[in-house]
């Protein structure tokens, strides 16, 4: 701040409060809706303050779901989402950190080509090659499986570049010292590189967990059995199913549950989250 202008400070506070309200409004409305019963919406105007049916609605969704629409309980879908998000986050980190190690610490023929193959994945988001990718997964018999949900998504140029960047800043003297002490490449990787990149791994994990949890198009396509529905993809099926009879209170309870884990991660690990966000964009 350069000079003291109380008027401007007040304006800045008002702007920020407006921002907070705009950002929170849809979630507040959803939360309020999720604490009422279906009949409360019949009057035509929806309530603005929470009602008494919070535990009842959430309990029902977690436990049994909307049975009439053939949807599994929300608890099952959340578990599927959790498994998918963890597999994607851990898988991406594991294969990217070893790739970056290979590219930075070894010289071998076709090294540049391998690097470019990984780079190209940046330019091929799943949305643009969706039909043939689906065919590949179907041919491999990976529809309706956790492998099908996660493996096609775990190649990651961004994560590989991030670890490459981290490794390049690690002084050569460490490698020399390790070699003089007789450490082979894998021992060096395990005992020096991994511990040194611990905070980068954690920051990346936060971003990738959110990425994995929020996947929509891919799970929607390859899960036809309700045992494998994830919550983010399932919520749309649920909204469609309840279109006939308005059960918005249950859809909104599901929406709240769908955003709870990633939002909790962002708020609880804000520092790591910001670090991860900035690093993955380098």
């Amino acid at each position: 701040m350069i000079e003291n202008r109380p008027g401007l400070n007040l304006l800045a506070h008002l702007t920020l409060m407006l921002g907070v309200v705009v950002v929170a409004l849809p979630v507040w409305v959803a939360f309020v809706a999720s604490t009422h019963t279906a009949t409360d919406f019949m009057s035509g105007t929806i309530p603005m303050w929470p009602g008494p049916h919070l535990l009842e609605n959430y309990g029902r969704m977690l436990d049994s779901g909307v049975s009439t629409s053939g949807m599994p309980p929300v608890g099952t879908m959340m578990l599927n989402s959790l498994i998918m998000a963890l597999l994607i986050a851990c898988g991406k980190i594991a294969i990217s950190i070893t790739s970056a190690f290979a590219i930075v610490y070894f010289r071998f023929p076709l090294r540049r080509m391998a690097f470019w193959c990984i780079f190209i994945t940046l330019m091929l988001p799943v949305e643009v090659r969706i039909v043939p990718t689906f065919q590949v997964v179907a041919d491999l018999g990976m529809l309706n499986s956790y492998a099908g949900l996660s493996v096609p998504l775990i190649a990651s140029a961004t994560a590989t570049f991030l670890f490459r960047q981290v490794f390049l800043t690690i002084p050569d003297e460490l490698t020399e010292a390790a070699r003089i002490d007789g450490a082979g490449p894998m021992k060096f990787f395990r005992d020096i590189l991994l511990p040194l990149s611990r905070t980068n791994i954690a920051a990346l994990f936060v971003i990738l967990f959110i990425y994995g949890w929020n996947q929509y198009l891919w799970p929607l396509l390859i899960t036809t059995s309700s045992d494998y529905y994830t919550i983010v993809a399932g919520i749309k099926r649920m909204a469609d199913a309840v279109d006939g009879l308005p059960q918005w209170h249950l859809v909104m309870a599901t929406a709240m549950l769908a955003m709870l884990p990633p939002v909790a991660v962002v708020i609880g690990m804000q520092r790591l989250f910001v670090k991860g966000l900035v690093e993955t964009e380098k």
């Binding site: 929170a24 939002v263 989250f273």
Partner: peptide, 12 residues
Amino acid sequence: LLVWPYAVAPAV
């Protein structure tokens, strides 16, 4: 108070 919508899935 402003960063958490990043975590909300586009579908949600």
